[in-house]
Computed example of a mutant assay.
Amino acid sequence: MSVFTLDQAQKDARLLPRLIELTERHRARGAAYANILAATGHPVGRVYRDTAELPWLPVRLFKTRALKSIPDEAVFKVLTSSGTTGDVSRIYLDKEAAAAQTRMLGATIQTVLGPRRLPMLVVDTKAIIKDRRSFSARGAGVLGMVTFGRDHVWALDDEGRPSLAAVRSFLDAHGDRPFLVFGFTFMVWLYLYELAREHKLDLSNGILIHSGGWKKLADRRVGNAEFRRAFRSDTGLTRIHNFYGMVEQIGVVYLEGPDGDSLYCPDFADVVIRDPDTWEPLPPGRPGLVEVVSTLPESYPGHVLLTEDLGVVHGVDDGSWPGKRFSILGRLPRAEARGCSDTFVGASV
């Protein structure tokens, strides 16, 4: 079942009432959020005619405030981001919220994988998922994805060193039919692509899902087009899906469509591009700050968040899937680097 089905008018009609409901839910259940709404001109009863009118929180606020809409005893899991300055976001989930994010992540990923679990090569170390109560963003991302695979093989050992033997063993067992590859972008390039190119490994039956880590690849002059070209030319891998997501809206991934050059919003989420000076929403074609909205966050007020990422909507209802298609252009100047794979320190190939 696909979660990329609603055109933009249908999505707007479905999302707006649910987002308003979440705003009032979080107001009633969290004093800190209620105070923010009161201070920013969003009293109880205010009328919202458009998603862009809803109150947003800067994503950085989760690094300095414990924002949650559940009592302490209901906290089932705390997720943390991987910021580079020592400040991390903390996201509080109860059991229901954790189950919902897993379910909707599954529905999103199955759009490109299908309903059956595939043999999976994880371009990471198993050590990243040791502590199952408190995860880094990278650990949460890995753990969330491994549920979609089977017969897992980890491409890196516990010390973060790439294992040619492990990758070859996986390909010997599963390389003749569809298999899943997952990793953060920089690690996939450094620890899989370069390994596969050097040793002439055949990845042609793979489906690669990857995210994050573009900053270090920019230093190597590798953008999305070159990333896809190199994998296709040197390894035979053509089914590649980048995605955009963050721990502050865990369970939501904006997935690269079959066209390979745009990200798309699932039916339960959307993006708004704002002018960084006036905060006004911008039309397609004009770059600005990315605001992400989702109906998933029920245990904390993360349903409307202003990120520190720059992006642009390329078009609406004119791509491989309906709704907005967009790209992430990078970080706002002077914004903190995201972390995740960019903060990974491992052995060189």
Rank of each mutant, 00 (worst) to 15 (best):
V313W: 03
L289V: 15
V253L: 15
L255D: 04
P281R: 05
P281V: 10
L263G: 03
D267Y: 11
D318E: 15
S294M: 08
L255I: 10
H241F: 10
D317P: 10
V292R: 12
V272D: 13
G288L: 03
V290I: 15
P276Q: 03
R274A: 07
R286H: 11
Y264V: 03
G245Y: 03
V253T: 02
D275W: 12
P283Y: 08
G315D: 14
P301K: 09
P287A: 13
G311F: 04
L296R: 01
H303D: 05
T278K: 00
T307A: 07
P301C: 08
S320R: 14
E248Q: 07
W321S: 01
G251M: 05
V316R: 09
L306C: 06
G319L: 05
D277W: 13
M246H: 10
Y244D: 04
G315H: 09
G285I: 00
T295M: 14
F243D: 00
V247R: 02
I250V: 04
E280S: 11
S299Y: 01
D270V: 05
S320E: 14
V290W: 10
M246C: 02
I273F: 14
S262Q: 09
R286D: 09
D309P: 04
V271C: 07
H303L: 01
P283H: 06
V252G: 00
P276E: 02
F243I: 00
L289D: 08
H314E: 05
D277I: 11
D317T: 08
W279T: 06
Y254N: 11
V272M: 11
V312K: 04
G260C: 11
I240S: 11
Q249I: 12
G251D: 07
R286Q: 15
E256K: 01
W279K: 02
D309C: 01
Y254F: 15
R274H: 14
G302K: 07
P297L: 01
D309L: 02
G315L: 00
D270N: 05
S294W: 07
W321H: 06
R239K: 14
P266K: 03
E256G: 08
L306P: 08
P258Y: 04
E298Y: 09
P266T: 05
S320Q: 13
T278Q: 09
P276V: 08
V253Q: 04
I273V: 14
P301I: 00
G302L: 02
Y264Q: 02
H314N: 15
